[in-house]
Amino acid sequence: MQIYFWAFVVGGLICVIGQLLLDVGKLTPAHMVTVLVVAGAILSGLELYQPLIDFAGAGASVPITSFGNALVQGALSEAKRSGLVGIVTGIFEVTSAGISSAIIFAFLASLVFRPKG
């Protein structure tokens, strides 16, 4: 149950960082999530992101930062197997769920729904 508490807190804090980037940094939402994805990738490169996921569960895996982590981990694990070329070929290995489901569901939505304005 402890993980629920930390999921809430860590997830909330990552969002607060995002909010500060919006309000104080005056970034657009697109710029803000881009910064966070890159930050996630950097933390992943420093082997700091998986421990965060182990500690906070969904609090670290749900924010967009974990996308950066997944990309780096995919690249690294493929690089271990196939050498340098694995960095390019392995990037999407771990993370296809997010992108595939977003494409599929967004497309399905466009078939059925219309924007309300």
Binding site: T28, P29, P115, K116, G117
Partner: peptide
């Protein structure tokens, strides 16, 4: 932005 986009 698209009208359903969640920007603040």
């Amino acid at each position: 932005y698209p009208t359903e986009y969640g920007s603040q």
